[in-house]
């Protein structure tokens, strides 16, 4: 198999779901702990992820490299397409354009979000326990909150609609009926996963996250 655009595009499609789609769902569920169980729940979730074996390898091969390939190749895919929603006002054509627009938004958002959170931990500016208070700072700033809301909705739409397209690109949903039903399921995925992220953003606004962080800070200082 020669390296050609068929192979790259196929890999791009696969990586968008496995592992990136899987990651976004796990991320949403972890954040949701903040809404359901408060700072302790969120902290437990973060600790659980950080206690995974071979964490640096997992991060590089399951998140960073797939993310970079999917993101950079995705920008090229977006560059290669036109938008003709003015002439063809069909729902699916709108989704086609939205997939490319949300992809670019997600690309920028993910870099910024990783810089604000994971990068700060790497740089030693904050600890894992302080991620809750970092998120509290972000969620209570109205500008950041709106930008996060846009970023999160763009990312989840891109994932849900990408899941629909993945099922076609890999030849799983073939007929129009199968594709229609899968579009309903993917719309459901969009609603549920969006709700997880929005509810956790709302939860991060609560004062308990500020206090919990202070407590953690005191605790680390004593330690």
């Amino acid at each position: 198999m020669k390296g050609n655009s068929y192979f790259s595009r196929k890999l791009h499609s696969l990586l968008g779901i496995i592992p990136l789609g899987g990651f976004i769902v796990v991320h949403g569920l972890t954040n949701y702990q903040a809404f359901e169980r408060g700072p302790e729940g969120f902290d437990k979730g973060v600790t659980l992820i950080n206690s995974l074996p071979l964490l640096p390898l997992l991060e590089i091969f399951v998140i960073y490299l797939p993310l970079l390939f999917h993101g950079i190749y995705g920008l090229y895919v977006a560059y290669q397409s036109n938008s003709n929603t003015g002439r063809f006002k069909y729902g699916r054509n709108w989704a086609f354009t939205a997939q490319r627009v949300t992809g670019v938004i997600t690309f920028v958002f993910v870099f910024w979000h990783v810089y604000q959170t994971r990068m700060q931990v790497y740089l030693g500016n904050i600890t894992h326990e302080e991620l809750g208070s970092t998120m509290n700072k972000i969620a209570t700033d109205p500008t950041y909150f709106v930008l996060y809301l846009i970023g999160v909705l763009a990312a989840v739409f891109h994932f849900s609609n990408g899941l629909w397209a993945f099922l076609i690109s890999w030849g799983i949903t073939i007929g129009p009926k199968a594709q229609r039903i899968s579009s309903y399921i993917c719309m459901g995925v969009f609603v549920v996963v969006s709700a997880l992220f929005i509810l956790s953003l709302v939860a991060f606004m609560g004062d308990e996250f500020k206090e919990a962080a202070n407590a953690a800070l005191t605790w680390t200082n004593i330690g």
């Binding site: 050609n4 655009s5 068929y6 790259s8 595009r9 196929k10 895919v77 397409s81 003709n84 063809f88 069909y90 699916r92 054509n93 989704a95 086609f96 354009t97 997939q99 629909w164 397209a165 076609i168 690109s169």
Partner: peptide, 13 residues
């Protein structure tokens, strides 16, 4: 090959 089926972006127009 290049320009083949992978070019489809599922706009379904």
């Amino acid at each position: 090959t290049d320009g083949g089926i992978e070019g489809c972006g599922n706009s379904q127009n």
